[in-house]
């Protein structure tokens, strides 16, 4: 009887899991297998026949200019958006974490950029960065028409759009710091600057790490702002990895696109693994 009940519970469980597992199987795991497989093949023009190309295609694509170029531009985007984004997030959160009349309004303002999708943000900065007439457009730094500088304009949209999220998460981290620590620090004669660097920063380090990784992953996946603002140009100077993958969906480029997808997967997984390792250590250390 007991065993019967067990079996019925298991059947119910599998029934409840079935819808989610079906979607995951068809649209997450099958495609993973498929990009690996497609990466080993070449397609004909219509995608109706394929030829075994073997692991050499992986070597060719991953060491080729296209992938390296995309990865480098993506890295630039990440390096331009993440550190500045985290620092600005800390600044906003520290300034807003204080009991003052009307602070809620400022908190809403600082969070407000999460209402702006990447495409909306791209339009906002399209207006501001229109070559020659946009407000922020200048030949010095934000110049979407200059292959050497277009990435700065694209990165600016990323920094601004992430502000709200960075602010919300950092503020939550600040508010989790126990009050009495500051009290004790003050009694020890710590000024505000010293207690920020000696108490606040170490205690919110796990939050900041989480944030940095999340922002890095967003950066690795950047696409919409480039598609709207520059279409990868000028002269391909803003073709990040996902942009190159997007443009390699037709049968003739599918093999290369698949290899680049596997490359993106590995890079993303490495970043996530790195975060996990550091976080583990950090948390134990913090305890």
């Amino acid at each position: 009887m007991k065993r019967r009940a067990r079996a019925r519970e298991a059947v119910a469980a599998y029934g409840l899991l079935a819808p989610a597992l079906l979607i995951f199987a068809v649209f997450a795991f099958y495609p993973l297998w498929r990009i690996i497989w497609l990466g080993l093949h070449l397609q004909n023009r219509t995608g109706t026949a394929q030829r075994w190309e073997g692991p050499s295609q992986y070597v060719d694509v991953l060491t080729g200019d296209e992938f390296r170029d995309g990865l480098w531009i993506t890295t630039q985007f990440v390096l331009l958006t993440v550190p500045i984004g985290v620092v600005l997030g800390i600044l906003l959160a520290v300034v807003a974490n204080r009991q003052l009349r009307g602070m809620r309004l400022f908190q809403i303002i600082f969070s407000s950029t999460i209402a702006s999708s990447t495409a909306v943000t791209a339009v906002i900065f399209f207006v501001l960065l229109e070559p020659s007439i946009g407000y922020l457009s200048s030949p010095w730094i934000f110049d979407l028409a200059d292959p050497d500088k277009a990435i700065y304009g694209v990165a600016l949209t990323g920094i601004w759009q992430n502000l709200g999220l960075t602010f919300i998460i950092t503020l939550a981290g600040l508010q989790a710091v126990p009050e009495d620590l500051y009290e004790a620090a003050r009694l020890d004669g710590f000024g505000p600057v010293r207690s920020f660097f000696r108490i606040t920063l170490p205690l919110i380090a796990p939050t900041l790490l989480f944030l940095s990784v999340a922002l890095t992953v967003f950066g690795l996946q950047a696409f919409a702002q480039i598609d709207v603002l520059t279409s990868g140009g000028p002269a391909g100077s803003t073709e990040v990895l996902v942009f190159k993958i997007f443009n390699a969906q037709d049968p003739l480029n599918l093999g290369a696109g698949s290899v680049m997808s596997v490359g993106l997967f590995v890079v993303t997984a490495l970043v996530a693994a790195l975060q996990f390792t550091i976080l583990e250590r950090r948390v134990h250390y913090g305890d």
Partner: peptide
């Protein structure tokens, strides 16, 4: 670990 950016080319074929 399998965001749409990674699975895009395969899913769009599907």
């Amino acid at each position: 670990m399998l965001p749409i950016e990674v699975t895009l080319v395969a899913n769009s074929r599907t």
